[in-house]
Design a protein around this nucleic acid. Sequence first.
RNA 1: GCGGGUGUAGCUCAAUGGUAGAGCGUCAGCCUUCCAAGCUGAACACGAGGGUUCGAUUCCCUUCACCCGCUCCA
Length: 543
Amino acid sequence: MAGQYIDGMEMDKLVSLCRRRGFLFQSSEIYGGLNGFWDYGPLGVELKRNVREAWWHDMVTGHNELSVAPGAPAPYEMTGLDCTIIMHPQVWKCSGHYDLFHDYMVDCRESKRRYRHDQVRGRWVTAKGQRIFVTTVAEVAQEQADVEHRALKFFHLRAKDADQLSWDGDFRALPEVTDLSQVLGPDARTLGTLTEPREFNLMFKTYVGALGGEESSAFLRPETAQGIFVNFRNVVDSTRVRVPFGIAQIGKSFRNEITPRNFTFRSREFEQMEIEFFCHPSQSQQWYQYWRDRRLKWYTDLGLAGERLRLREHDREELSHYSTGTADIEYAYPFLPPGEFGELEGIAHRGDFDLRSHMEGKLDPATCPLALERDADGKPRWRGSGKDLTYRDDLTGERFIPHVVEPSAGADRATLAFLCEAYTEDEAPDENGVMQARTVLRLHPRLAPLKAAVFPLVRKDGMPEIAQEVYAALKPHFPVFYDEKGAVGRRYRRQDEAGTPYCLTIDGQTLKDRTITIRDRDSLNQWRIHVDDCVAELQQLLR
RNA sequence: GCGGGUGUAGCUCAAUGGUAGAGCGUCAGCCUUCCAAGCUGAACACGAGGGUUCGAUUCCCUUCACCCGCUCCA
């Protein structure tokens, strides 16, 4: 493939092109912008729509449930769903997002580090007449060693003087300590450098109904997946689908990221393309592998074929114990340091965690086998729906809770990756045959915002009239663009920058035999086709 | 949110305590018979708010956004 991958230095060029050509704008720009929010412009909206539609077609509507897909263990069905962004607050309590996304954080004024309030642990220790609380974020096995080392250092004692340290009580979590002035932060050398704990809610909170107040509080969804789980029963009861089957959904999700960064990569409002695939527990591993490979192939088929795309299986330590596998599809975005990859999509084996949590109440991910998470009084921390979310196989009579494989893709991240991959600078000859720099988006034709452009070679001799005729013939079938202004070379270059794969030009010969030239964006090759064949020719090329 | 850097036309960059310039791009017209830089003309900027000053794009404060670190993983 001609052209060079862009590196971090050249990410700016892509961002600039996106803005200049109307792919992406900063949200609310005229008011100074809003951190973590992005708007898609005229070209961007088409590109992202094409990404979504390619996904929906390839995963849902184009799927043939009567035959066995390559690599699949069995035939399966696919269906779609579109649920609300705001759901019952209990959904997020049972899903675990409420607890996980609702943290208190403390900052250290000295080390400039930030910690989860509840993850900082420490011990009271007295030496030289002073009593301090020494904290650590080390693993439990190392925490005593770490705390002792740092206590010695604080009191200016040698290791052999460890017996001068008088420990008071066992390890306890930082939230149990009220006086932060006597706390030695995990990376601090002086006392009292930790700030008061501050609430971090990674979910956007809102209020349902005209009256505010905690009673009416709700959240914007941080993922679309839960809407699928809570509708599992509805889909099964209303569609005659049988396990194995998948429910797909595309929609906006919201996370109050601490630090939105890297163009649209980490946005606070973003779009997901998720599938929850329900299968028999005994087959879940095979389905996991199928989806992992199927999803990787989807990206490569659409042009992310280089070394910048990879599939990374999570290590055993990264997995929840109820999961038998998780893989990330990652892309080496140019804004990342060389060798680093950013996540495009996660394919997770989630077992029966989600359906059971919505049935029985929030499960404790730390338990094995999974058990209800309980509060200090032994009551369920968050009550489930109590509804039966088991599935009965009518053929075998077996009743079970399906296991779930979850391919969860980021629509904006995919769009960004396709843009990064497509951005190319190469050379093309000018009118004197001298090579000139050219910027071209080598987008896959399925993704290109415009499929073709139509030009009269010059604006006279009846060429515009024929060009408009061609344009009119194409327009009902494809997004196409008409341009008759200025030099034709300039018009070609403009289309190259927008990623338009084909340009049709009406020239002098057209007037004689009604043939026009068609020019390929990537190879710059041209060939002639008859005016009456241009729709068919493009349909052929764009397939 | 904390620390460091940045903020001038759409883009890239100048200059200045007193009316802000250029190139590219855009638009209009001319010229153009296949790959951006020919001619003529036009539009467009000091991120926002406040302060100091006779006067601020320039000095000060605040804020917003962007880039680099700490956190997050679609």
